[in-house]
Design a protein around this nucleic acid. Sequence first.
DNA 1: TGCATTTGTGAACAACGTTCATAACCGGAG
DNA 2: CTCCGGTTATGAACGTTGTTCACAAATGCA
Lengths: 213, 213
Amino acid sequence: MALDKEEMSERVIAIAEDLIEAGGAENLKARTIATQAGIAVGSIYNLFRDIDDLHRAVNMRLLGRLGEAGAAAMAEMEKAGVTDTRQRLLALARAYAGFVAAHPASWPALLAFNRRQLPHAEPDAYEARLSALLQIIARVLADGRFGLDETRLRIAARTLWSSVHGIVTSGYAPNSAGRQADETWEQVELLVAVFIKGLERGGTFDHAETAPS
Amino acid sequence: MALDKEEMSERVIAIAEDLIEAGGAENLKARTIATQAGIAVGSIYNLFRDIDDLHRAVNMRLLGRLGEAGAAAMAEMEKAGVTDTRQRLLALARAYAGFVAAHPASWPALLAFNRRQLPHAEPDAYEARLSALLQIIARVLADGRFGLDETRLRIAARTLWSSVHGIVTSGYAPNSAGRQADETWEQVELLVAVFIKGLERGGTFDHAETAPS
DNA sequence: TGCATTTGTGAACAACGTTCATAACCGGAG
DNA sequence: CTCCGGTTATGAACGTTGTTCACAAATGCA
């Protein structure tokens, strides 16, 4: 046969990626995969434990590409000699926004998938790739010289990331159609601008008289 | 029979809510509902078009309660005579965070559900309830006197909401277990503080030399 | 009471993920 | 070349899912 086991796995992952991108996670059906890959249904289970395992493989590939996009954006900034914190953060945000826009179905599928897996809580290679992204942000913030110690730097990076994430995936989208992308970007610009100004002004975050319930 | 059609609908919705809360959206099975409600499987389809319709009804109830929580938080602030913008925004954020914490499974289910429905795009009564919340935020920002015109006020409100949303649902949670809630709240405090400081400083958002790809 | 309409019922259907007995295949030993 | 132990491929079969539909029961009105 022309195809190794490894090759067939990657081919199946590629097919799965297309299926998810075409119709969300619920479009990832064993029989469709088998037909498109030219194999039997049962053979899928020789390559992956179950369909969730295949979805996880697809998500790994997605996260890898997201990491590449972030690193590429930073490399481009460095090559161009851009040291301005605002522009660097906006470049990272633009990388993320572009990535989400390029994967309008598989990225939400990844988010939904991750939410389901909280109970079993394996160490997860997910987190490694994710915290790499957070460290990129933290490094940019450190270069901004806002006088943040390591702990607050980590918190600030997480805050910024989660905020951009919330804006880009845009929660609910009560929007008609086209100008959605524009307004999303306006929000990102506002967030980054306000974040930097806020960090510049107050030395750090000081008094915190309100507590969570 | 003791139960009206309306009453039975609400009872089914209540059962559905419990099922979703117990095991996510995928735990909402027709036969389980039928058994717990003491009716036949087919009868469910006399009350709701399909299971998605039932899930939508559950989500409506959820959104209603979220709106109530937000309004209650504002009313409490008003009764206490609190006019400080920071404290009012934190009260709203705390209401949202508390709501999410109180519905750890059904709220993610709502988010995932909404993402699936983008293609058919009905006018949706969702949006009405949502923009009510946004207007609460906008009103608080307006009282803060940052010199924002109506358009920028709307954008700022959406930015703030989406950011808090991103933080609270916390994207991915590479966290072990307990102090997660604490760190989430630290992030919310940082965001709100930095947001206000940023708005106070720069009159509005001015130059925007970077554009989306 | 009798009839028209609505509501309730559960067996039946298609589609799904997953399993498993069986067949095909493969690489070296004799 | 021939066999044979072990890996891989196969698709029929199983249990569960959402949904439908012919039929039974109930209900309301004249």
